[in-house]
Design a protein around this nucleic acid. Structure first.
Length: 499
RNA sequence: GCGACCGUAGUCUAGCGGUAGGAUAUCGGCUUCCCGAGCCGAGGACCCGGGUUCAAAUCCCGGCGGUCGCACCA
């Protein structure tokens, strides 16, 4: 990631490494006042794409700590554990299933693995050295719930399980109708072996998991018709060299995407990621090969974004979880997490709904958004964020730090706040500095009170991207709302202003 | 976890055995001032611990972090 962007982030309060005064700890990031505002707007924008335009998608919130039994049922305790083999000679580490290619090796005890290695005389494939004793590495963060050591808890590695285990209630709340989707936004933890690359691989991060439940015998998505000609860029698992550009119709007809709903959500995701400032041609969906997929998934696409230094970053995942989770939790809990088929007022069948899961990493979306927005023009740094995710709608400045100008600026600040505009007052400095500072954190507009404002009750609005200015009546400043939504052209929003 | 490099004000950086310097940011003063403007003034730093030395930011050892490469990445 761009060093200048990191420096900007620390200097202007977007984010910085956590626990700094005690030396720090990689994999954790603190978000500052400006970073949080951007994150908040990204979440709002996500809601406007996925929640607000559907009446069958709603939000819940469940605990971060989970009793062990839940993550055992979900398969995470078993599958999130890697048995690692270390070569005593060259120090390379391998996952045991990469060395011992025997069905069910994940279930073996450490002793069994050690005996097998000895019997077969297996050595390090790189240097032919002997292996050390195998050991388990679990990516789940472990804790105890209450005072008894036997009550093991884990910090959730995904927000999904909190939704699955509530299926019965959620299904009831939706009037026992399918399909419907439930999401939650929250922190999750994964004990990564060696987190790197700043914001990219974190031990704690914010996820949006959307679990969408539908009847597999009625799998069609009514929105597909509207979007079937829209194209997605796809990288197939069997041919990772060529990005294919395929329409939604082709993806479904050729069974490249196995379910209509998954294709629909992938389309929404493309639009969402575009709205945070990422061009179509910097996005693609990467199909995961069977051995690359999570244990619960029958098909997975990763939504990738190519950053300014040409690195692909996974910002979202689309998994076809089938009935894996509801089935497992039903069997392990003894509760029937099922939907009902009713005919003539009678329940004639109970079944497990199928699940497709769009899952988003907020910090990564934040990362690609600021990366794409970062520009250097004429020795100036500009974070050209889309206006909807800018930390503020506008800054209010004065041409000089004079009391009579400040008074007007404060009145404007107060009245725009009352009109629900997200504004900040920055009146203490030379105007060029205010503009530069506003540019650096991506504020799209700066409203400036000058001496003439005292006479004509007008102020200038300066545009971040063009540096053009218009002059508008103070009483009409809520035109900023229309400007933010791109409902009106900047130069038509007021009189052109020139010095 | 292994290897290489690195850790100095909020930020960027100079110093590499002898008073820790600059830029920028911050604070105060002046400045009728539309793109990091100018002048004056102020405060602010050697990651932690141990060792060598008359003297350590500097050399050595250990720790903690970071960057990159290898490995790992549900």
């Amino acid at each position: 990631m761009n060093n200048k962007l990191i420096e900007l982030a620390k200097r202007r309060g977007l984010f910085w490494p956590s626990f700094e005064i005690y030396g720090g700890m990689s994999g954790f990031i603190d978000f500052g006042p400006i970073g949080i505002k951007i994150i908040d707007k990204i979440e709002k924008l996500w809601r406007s794409h996925f929640e607000k335009r559907h009446d069958f998608i709603f939000e819940i919130s469940t605990p971060i700590v989970m009793p062990e039994i839940i993550l055992k049922a979900s398969g995470h305790v078993e599958h999130f554990t890697d048995v690692v083999l270390t070569c005593s000679k060259c120090g390379r580490k391998y996952r045991v299933d990469h060395i011992i290619e025997v069905e069910g090796v994940e279930g073996w005890s450490m002793e069994e693995i050690e005996r097998y290695l000895k019997e077969k005389g297996m050595k390090c494939p790189e240097c032919n050295g002997e292996f050390e004793k195998p050991y388990k590495f679990n990516l789940l963060m472990k804790t105890n719930i209450g005072p008894y050591a036997g009550d093991i808890g884990y910090l959730r590695p995904e927000a999904a399980q909190g939704i699955f285990i509530n299926f019965r209630r959620l299904y009831e709340l939706n009037g026992k109708k399918l399909p419907f989707g439930v999401f939650q936004i929250g922190k999750v933890q994964r004990n990564e072996i060696s987190p790197r690359k700043g914001l990219y691989r974190m031990r704690e991060f914010t996820i949006i998991d959307l679990e969408f439940f539908y009847d597999k015998e009625n799998p069609s998505c009514p929105y597909i018709k509207e979007i079937e000609n829209e194209k997605l860029r796809i990288l197939r698992a069997e041919n990772k060299n060529n990005v294919l550009e395929l329409s939604i119709r082709e993806l479904i007809r050729n069974e490249i995407v196995l379910t209509e709903w998954l294709a629909y959500f992938m389309y929404l995701s493309k639009e969402f990621i575009r709205s945070v400032g990422i061009d179509y041609n910097k996005q693609y969906f990467l199909e995961k090969a069977p051995e690359e997929r999570a244990h619960y998934s029958s098909q997975t696409f990763d939504h990738m974004v190519i950053t300014s230094d040409n690195t692909p970053i996974e910002v979202a995942g689309f998994a076809f979880r089938t009935d894996y989770d509801l089935r497992n939790h039903s069997e392990k809990s003894g509760n029937q997490l099922v939907a009902e088929k009713v005919e003539g007022g009678k329940v004639i069948e109970k079944f497990y709904p199928y699940v497709v899961e769009p899952s988003f990493g907020i910090e990564r979306i934040f990362l690609v958004a600021i990366d794409a927005a970062f520009k250097e023009i004429k020795n100036r740094t500009i974070l050209a964020l889309p206006k909807v995710i800018s930390p503020f709608d506008a800054a209010i400045a004065t041409i000089a730090a004079k009391d009579e100008l400040m008074k007007v600026a404060k009145e404007i600040y107060k009245s725009l706040k009352e009109k629900s505009l997200d504004v900040i007052l920055d009146t203490s400095e030379y105007i060029g500095k205010v503009y530069a500072r506003a540019d650096e954190i991506g504020i799209p507009y700066v409203i400036t009170v000058d001496y003439q404002s005292l006479e004509d009750k007008k102020v200038t609005i300066r545009d971040r991207d063009t540096w053009k200015q218009i002059r508008v009546n103070i009483s009409e400043l809520d035109i900023i709302k229309a400007l933010i939504k791109n409902e009106i052209e900047f130069e038509k929003a007021g009189e052109i202003f020139k010095n």
